[in-house]
Every structure is written in structure tokens, then in C-alpha cells.
Design a protein around this nucleic acid. Structure first.
Lengths: 334, 334
DNA sequence: TGGCCCGATTAAAACGTATCAATCACAATG
DNA sequence: CATTGTGATTGATACGTTTTAATCGGGCCA
């Protein structure tokens, strides 16, 4: 009564346990009549498959691990939503791991994933360390990189072109007639920050300008608070730039607040553009121009690739998918 | 080589599998010398325990399920972070389920949890249906309600007093000299919205005013967009209220934008207060007064209760914990 | 020296499912 | 009628761990 097993169902339906298992896993292999009888027994007894026993015997589970850097960041939240939806549609459960940017916690999460014998892992690595992921593959755990380019061609990866995004942002500012342009960014170690700067420089070069003109302000964090501090730095300068590109929307929102409080008009005095197009970008007082990424889609597609690799290991071809970002023009830019 | 089992470790260390299991689960029961030998073997072989086999034999897993209404809402994200941290500290993995407010998806998530034989479930129920949770308890799965009062004394629940919070918000507005007060809220079915209104009415009554004065504007969603629409409604009225209380910060941010765009000064013309104190509340152009909830703590404590119930089922006493919210005064209120 | 006890270790039996070879019923074929 | 073939079902086994009772090896006491 505590637990009702496949045997109980078999007894009730007058078949063998093997047949019940077949109804569960290969319904097409079992005759119509018996199937409905078994299904009825399942319903009547309230049977629910013991996932662990199934995993143990089959050698693989129906769960995937999702390791993100910061679950508090709307970007990752959106990705997680996409992952969750797709996984759920395909009958997989998602085990969530939040590394908070700490390598130790990431390591611990991967261990948990390994213990649970997850079928695969979706990860936005917090730093460059191929070895760690290699160890997963040795355990027959598929890996798909999320928002990170592939480190080798033998793995799947889903990312958004940050160079293009950076170029879009600065190109837009230049078309608005911007002269001096500032770039507010996060820690240098973050790949996305570098790529977006590279794009910005490309846009300058394409306009016949010197990429070195870009005035860069690097902050230790990519939060709204850091953005406001960046505004103070900017205001301390002799002259304001005509336009500012922030490496993410949180920085941009903080910057916006800092500028407005100092009496600087946006976009009249300074144009401002962010990155990510989080919900709050459109909701701010002066709505924020930004670079939109297909975040939710990123999660969905990454999951799709992962499950494809799991379910069809032989026909699966590794793919590196690169999405393109979109420019969203709102009030904060001319 | 593909999988290294407890047996391989045993062979390598020159002991029996049972001893290895003891080293893993009751290290104090095994002699010092053998323990270090076994631990060495584990390290050398890269052994990682097969969670499913363990679960199968032991009868219970080291995972918990977390079912939230909307993973995109910063409130739930904070809760999830608290849950994840505490669970991780205690060696538990978290399976994430996002119901998106859909009863069907919630149902499906609970099924997945049951299949995985999770030790317990943390849930913010999307509606009132005690039966569903009762079925979980019959399967020996502990349940703790999150941000929802207990439905009976035989279960744990962690919530924040929304009535008090509502009273705090409106009390603050009244102290600021507000005459007419508006209440912008979400769907009537949402318990939190009702409780907060009740608190608002209590504050009016306590100030010797008629609770019926409260001008309520109910929106179908609790988003920034809905907040801006609410502002339009408000502006269409003959006279603006002196102050507005919004049932969450997203509504308030939208309202703020709507008012400012219409040339209404905040807080000079209208005071504005939100609820939740999400990060963006302090980052908005006119920083938002709000009611802070111990969100992260909510997740941590709920998880602690759940794991206590799991690990000490005999001594565990069910608790209904009610946190108190805090008033955070910023620029948007007088 | 013989008997006992105690801590440390082992051997064996489960847990619930999936899988595969074997069996069965029965129809079609020669 | 004997044989083959086919599709449906069964029985037995193994997955990797935990747990219990049994065993072992000494040290201690009488």
C-alpha cells in the first residue's frame, strides 16, 4: 500500500511484469486489449513509475542538469524558462544548479548531476576550463554549452553573436550622429563584455573612425548600482560623451538614473543604449534602447540539441548554433 | 571503466562492498586505517555514487522538488535562490518545476516529482486545492507551502504577512498627508492582492477614515505594462488621488512611468509606493518606496523546515512561520 | 587455558524496473 | 497434416547500492 509497484499492476491486470513495462515504454509492442487492461490497472492503483529503479536498470535517467551563473539575472531566468518548457514537453525533469559565479559551487553542482546520473548537462561555464566538461563526457553525460561558443567541434553549443550585437549598438549611436562614445562594461574576464567591445570597435572602424576613440569604463559588477557609479565617473570628466553603450541593461538603467539625477537629459544631451532587452528596459522612465537576444529560445534550442544527442546518439550531429541579436530602438537614443 | 561501482572500489581497497558503503554513509563505524584506504581508492578510481541505486535501496532520495508559479518573477527567483543554497548546503539537489500559473503544468510537475521519488516538495500553490497535496503526503512526500498560509495545522508553511504589509504601505501614505488613495492591484483570485487590500483598509480605519474610500483599480496582470495602463485609467478621472499603493513593484514601475510621462510629478503631485522591493525598485529614476519581504530567507527557511521534516520525521513539529515585511522609504513618497 | 565479549568486517538479500531470450498460441503455407 | 512464421507474452536476470545478521579476530577475565 505504501508503494505500488509494477508487480501489483501486473497482478491486477492478470499479466506479467514485463508486459506492464512494455505498456510503459513501448506501447506499440503490446496488443490493444491488454494495453487498456493494464492502463486501467495503473489508474486504479495509482501507480507511478519508480524513476530510480528505472534509471538503475536502464542505465540512464530522464533528467537533465542546468548550471547557470546567476539565477537572479533576468537573462538566465529567461533561458531557464525555455529549458524548463522544452524539457517538460519531452518528459524530462530539470535539476537546477546555481553557481553564483563560484567555481567551487559549479564543481559541486556538477558532482550532484553526476550522482543523479543526469542524461545531459546544460551549462554556461563561469570560466574557461575544458577539462571539467571533458570529465562529464567520459561519464557518458552529454554537454551543451549555453551562451558560450563551442570549445571544440565535437560538442554542441548555442550562443548569440555578441560581436554583431556590439556593432549594432554602436552603429545605431553613430547613425544618430554621436561623436564621442563611452563603453561601460563589466569585468574583463567576461567573454561577453569583450566580444561586445570588439563589435563596438568594428562599428567605429566601419564608419571610418579610430576604434581607440572608445572611452571604456570597466566596473567590477554588472548591476544597476555599478551603472550609477559609472555615471558618476563619467560626470567627473571634463566633457560628457555624446553617447554611451552599456554592456548590459542593468548597467544602463543605473547609468540612466545617474545621468537624469545630475540634470543630464537623455537622449537630448546623451544617447544611451543597453544590452539584453530585459523587461525593465522598456518599463523605465525613459524607455531604454537595447540589443535583444532570443533568450527564451536560447534555452529551448539548447535543450532540444541536448535531448537529440541523448535520444539519437548515433545520428546526432554536433551543432554550434549562433543566433543573431536585434536592435530595439526606444526613447533613450536619438 | 565506463562506470566504476562500489565493488571496484572495494576490490581496489581490499575490503568488501559493505565496508565501502559504510565509509560513504557512516564513516564513524569503520576503523581509521581502512577508511583512509577506501577513501584513497574512491579518489583514484573517480568513483561517484549512483544516486538511483542508492535511492532505490534506501527507499528515499536526496532531492526535493520546487514548484513555483512564475520563474520569471524576481520574487520567485529570489525564493529559488534561497532554496537552492540551503538544499545544496545540506547535500540535496533541487528539481525545478515552473507551473506558469497553469494547473495542468503544476499537475505534471508534481507527477515528475513523484516519479523521481523526491524527498519533499516546496510549492506555492497556484490555487486552492488541498486534495492534490494530500495525495503527495500519502506517498510519504513531505510538503511545505511557500508564500501561502497553511491549510491545516498538520503541515508546514512559510509566508509573509501581507495584511501587515498593506497596512504599512497605506499607513506610510497617510502619515505623508495623503487624502484620496488609490490601490492598483491584480486579479481578484490572487490571495496576496486581497490580503494587501485588507491591510490598506485597516490602516484607513485606524486613521479614523472610511475604508471604502480606497479607490481600487484591478488589472488582469501584475506587470509593468499593466501598471502603465492603470496610470492611463487614473489620469482619465476627474481628479488624481494624492497617493497610490500598487500591489507589486512591477505595477508601480509602470504606474511611475505613466505618471511622469503625463507630466505628473512624483512624489510632489502623487506619492507612489509598491510592494516586493525588487532590485529595480531602487534603480528606477525616481527610486520607489516599497514593502520589502525577506524573499531569499523565505526560500531558505522553507527548505530548512522541509529537510527537518525529512531527516527527523519523529521529532519534527509542523510549523507555520509568518514573516513580517518592512517598509522601505525612498524618493517616490513624501 | 578456556570462555566471552566487543569492535570491525563480511556475505547475502533485497529494492523496482528493463531487457532479452525463450515460449506460447495460432494462422498461414507447403 | 506437418512445418514454418509471426506477434504477443513471459520468466529470469542484472543494474548498484544499503542493510541486517552472521562471522571473524583479538583482548580480557576467571
Amino acid at each position: 500500500m505504501a508503494t505500488v509497484s509494477i508487480k501489483d499492476v501486473a497482478a491486477r491486470a492478470g499479466v506479467s511484469p514485463g508486459t506492464v513495462s512494455n505498456v510503459l515504454n513501448r506501447p506499440e509492442k503490446v496488443a490493444g486489449g491488454t494495453r487498456v487492461r493494464v492502463e486501467a490497472a495503473i489508474r486504479e492503483l495509482g501507480f507511478v513509475r519508480h524513476g530510480s529503479a528505472s534509471t538503475l536498470r536502464a542505465g540512464h535517467s530522464r533528467t537533465i542538469g542546468l548550471s547557470v551563473i546567476d539565477i537572479g539575472n533576468p537573462f538566465f531566468t529567461d533561458v531557464a524558462a525555455g529549458v524548463e518548457d522544452m524539457a517538460s514537453e519531452r518528459g524530462y525533469a530539470v535539476i537546477l544548479g546555481n553557481s553564483s559565479g563560484s567555481r567551487l559551487k559549479e564543481e559541486r553542482n556538477l558532482l550532484v548531476f553526476a550522482e543523479q546520473r543526469v542524461r545531459g548537462v546544460l551549462i554556461t561555464p563561469s570560466d574557461e576550463d575544458p577539462g571539467r566538461l571533458e570529465r562529464l563526457r567520459e561519464r557518458d553525460i552529454a554537454v551543451v554549452l549555453v551562451d558560450h561558443p563551442a570549445e571544440r567541434s565535437s560538442q554542441c553549443a548555442v550562443a548569440v553573436n555578441d560581436v554583431t550585437g556590439g556593432a549594432m549598438a554602436v552603429g545605431h549611436l553613430l547613425r544618430g550622429g554621436a561623436g564621442r562614445i563611452g563603453y561601460v562594461t563589466g569585468p574583463a574576464a567576461i567573454r561577453q563584455c569583450q566580444d561586445r567591445r570588439r563589435g563596438a570597435e568594428q562599428a567605429l572602424a566601419a564608419a571610418g573612425r579610430d576604434p581607440a576613440e572608445l572611452r571604456e569604463i570597466a566596473m567590477p559588477a554588472m548591476t544597476a548600482k555599478a551603472g550609477q557609479q559609472a555615471a558618476e565617473k563619467l560626470l567627473a570628466d571634463d566633457a560628457l560623451p555624446d553617447a554611451v553603450f552599456c554592456a548590459n541593461d542593468l548597467l544602463a538603467l543605473g547609468m540612466l538614473r545617474g545621468l537624469l539625477q545630475a540634470g543630464v537629459r537623455v537622449p537630448d544631451d546623451v544617447s544611451l543604449i543597453g544590452y539584453d532587452d530585459i523587461d525593465f528596459a522598456s518599463a523605465s522612465t525613459v524607455s531604454l534602447s537595447s540589443i535583444r537576444q532570443p533568450t527564451y529560445q536560447l534555452g529551448r534550442v539548447a535543450t532540444e540539441l541536448l535531448l537529440d544527442e541523448c535520444d539519437n546518439p548515433d545520428t546526432h550531429a554536433h551543432q554550434q548554433i549562433m543566433f543573431q541579436p536585434d536592435l530595439v530602438v526606444r526613447e533613450s537614443t536619438r
